[in-house]
Structures are given as structure tokens and as C-alpha cells.
């Protein structure tokens, strides 16, 4: 770990301003991802701004009937919230499918969205990795790719985004609220938060320097039957090979987002129009530009079959 200085944020505006002005500053929330990466010097912030004291741990109704989830709401609390369980069960289930109880007690809403990839080469400083060290190359391209993305990738990076929560939030059309270094706030669709790797895989989000996530806003409940189906090699405590977040209405229409297949939660509003008539067309649309290797080509079939299974679940739980 590199030595760093530390401060506790006193307000959201102060935190954002400091983060932009102190060189090498980073926010720390639950620390479950950042601290691990700091120990092995994959993250080397010179300064940590601890946001845990900020008043961002509330879940509040919004005027239009949605929910505002503070950036510091812990995954456990969000999953247990009665309104979330009733109106957004896809989110509660996605959260509970992630990590372990101990980690979820610590992990925050913003931290979960901004967690970094689990590509094993990213974690091994002796291997080339464009995300860790721009321009060094990508060891995964010619290596072991079972857990990697098959769409939205580039020749520079094929890492998958590991979050389960984000997949459910994407299917719920969540908005991300932030405050910037100059004190202005904005709200952006979660769909626009994560970047695809292109030639700059080390740049993962569209946030500005110092921009602090303050909340995630869920629009009014979408109704329908919610399913989150996470497929993995063991029953718990593993990242998704493929996951499907599904919100299905009585007429068979609905929304679908995939996890485990892309550098960000993967959804196509256009493709999902076919959900009622031809579910496989939805997957075709989502995965149309897939680039696979022998060890992850199975994700094409798995995504199809998992969507079928999710639809069957939704049908039978109506």
C-alpha cells in the first residue's frame, strides 16, 4: 500500500471540491473494493476522502412515487427495505445474489456501482493490463476469458462489470444524482454512467474529476413480475457467468438487462420490444455484435436459456 493522507468529508460540496483539487484524491465508502485494490497497489490514491459521515444513507420517497436511495445506503439495508422488496423486488434479489452478508453490510450503493472489474489479470501486477496500466496490453485477450465480457468490448479490454445491483437498477431505469467540484448537481441515466472500454479502458465512467455520487433515484415502480436470475459455478459467493434482470408485464412485454456479458449492465430498449412475441430475438439483439472465445462462447447459449428460465419463473410466480 502506498502511504496516503486521509480526511473525513464534511459536506457533499466540500467533498467534491476537495476531490478535484487534491492531486490523486479518491472517495472511500465501504472500502470493500478500494482497500483491497490499494493493498496490492492497483489503486494508489495519494489522498482518501472518507464520505461515510455524510448524510447520504437514507431511502426516501420521491414526489412522483419513486425512491431516492442515498449513495451510502448499505447493500444489506437496501435489500431489506420493505418498499424495495415490494415495489422493486428485482433489485432486492440482485443485491442478495451478490457477495456475502458481511460484505453487503459494508458495501454502499455508490461503491457497488463504481466497483472495478474482477478480471484476474487486472489483479496480477506481473501481467499486462490496459485498464491497470494504459498501453501495457491485455493479457486476457490471448488468455483465460471464461469470466469476461462478450459484447461492448474492444481490442484493448474485454473485462466484464461485476455488479449485480447495477443490472437490476439498469432494468429499473435508475438515474444517478451527483454533485460536482463546482457545487453544481446533475442527474444522469445509469445507462450513461459507465463507459465502454474503447481504447481507454482505464476510464470507466463519465463522472468528472471529483464528482461525487449522492444518490440513485428509482422511477415509480414498473409493476409486473420481477426476476433476477444469476447463473454461477457455485451456489453462492461467486460472480455471475450470466445474469438476467427481468421485469415482465402480464401481456408478456417488459424489460431485460443482462449481467456478466459486458463492461456495463447490458440492455437494449429496442431489442426488448420483442419480449412478448419472441424472447430469443431480445437476446439476439442484445448479443448481436458478440465477440467470443472458445472459453466464453457458451455465454451466448447461456444467456438465451437463462432468459427462457427467467420468463418461465415469471410466468409461474404470477
Amino acid at each position: 500500500m502506498k502511504p496516503f493522507t486521509y480526511e473525513r468529508a464534511t459536506s457533499t460540496a466540500q467533498a467534491a471540491a476537495r476531490a478535484a483539487s487534491v492531486p490523486g484524491a479518491k472517495f472511500v465508502a465501504g472500502g470493500t473494493n478500494l482497500l483491497d485494490l490499494m493493498k496490492i497497489e492497483i489503486e494508489t490514491p495519494a489522498h482518501l476522502i472518507d464520505v461515510n459521515g455524510l448524510d447520504l444513507a437514507k431511502i426516501e420517497p420521491t414526489p412522483d412515487g419513486g425512491l431516492r436511495v442515498g449513495a451510502l445506503v448499505r447493500n444489506t439495508d437496501l435489500a431489506a427495505d420493505a418498499r424495495v422488496r415490494r415495489d422493486y423486488p428485482v433489485l432486492a434479489r440482485a443485491l442478495l445474489a451478490g457477495a456475502s452478508p458481511q460484505l453487503r453490510n459494508r458495501a454502499t450503493t455508490a461503491g457497488n456501482l463504481l466497483q472495478r472489474t474482477r478480471c484476474p489479470y487486472f489483479y496480477d501486477p506481473d501481467q499486462p493490463c490496459n485498464k491497470r496500466e494504459p498501453g501495457s496490453g491485455c493479457a486476457a485477450l490471448a488468455g483465460y476469458r471464461r469470466m469476461h465480457a462478450i459484447v461492448g468490448t474492444s481490442d484493448a479490454c474485454i473485462a466484464a462489470h461485476p455488479s449485480d445491483m447495477a443490472v437490476a437498477m439498469r432494468v429499473l431505469d435508475a438515474q444517478v444524482e451527483t454533485i460536482r467540484a463546482d457545487g453544481t448537481t446533475r442527474s444522469l441515466p445509469l445507462a450513461d454512467l459507465h463507459r465502454l472500454p474503447g481504447s481507454t479502458p482505464h476510464l470507466e465512467t463519465t463522472l468528472d474529476a471529483g464528482e461525487l455520487v449522492t444518490a440513485v433515484v428509482l422511477p415509480p415502480p414498473p409493476g409486473g413480475v420481477h426476476v433476477y436470475r444469476k447463473v454461477r459455478d457455485r451456489a453462492s459467493y461467486a460472480f455471475a457467468l450470466v445474469s438476467v434482470a427481468l421485469v415482465r408485464q402480464a401481456d408478456g412485454s417488459g424489460r431485460v438487462a443482462l449481467g456478466g456479458v459486458a463492461p456495463k449492465p447490458w440492455r437494449s430498449e429496442e431489442a426488448e420490444r420483442a419480449l412478448a412475441s419472441d424472447p430469443q430475438a431480445v437476446v439476439d439483439g442484445l448479443l448481436k455484435d458478440a465477440r467470443t472465445s472458445p472459453d466464453n462462447a457458451f455465454k451466448l447459449t447461456l444467456a438465451r436459456r437463462t432468459l427462457d428460465a427467467a420468463i418461465a419463473d415469471a410466468r409461474s410466480s404470477r
Binding site: P120, Y123, D124, G143, Y144, R234, A235
Partner: peptide, 29 residues
């Protein structure tokens, strides 16, 4: 069902060299 040290045949090592990547059964299994 899951334990497998995956060989990177280019670089010549076991890639999944931690307990997140080398999956032993958990209680739920």
C-alpha cells in the same frame, strides 16, 4: 464441480490464483 487451476498457456501460470477465482465449495453448495 468447480475446482480448476486454469493454466494460461501463453504466460505459463495458474491464472485464477486467489480464492475468488479458485472456487471451492461454499456452505450453500
Amino acid at each position: 464441480l468447480s475446482e480448476h487451476l486454469v493454466v494460461d498457456r501463453n504466460a505459463g501460470f495458474f491464472v485464477n490464483h486467489d480464492l475468488a477465482g479458485y472456487e471451492v465449495p461454499v456452505h450453500a453448495d
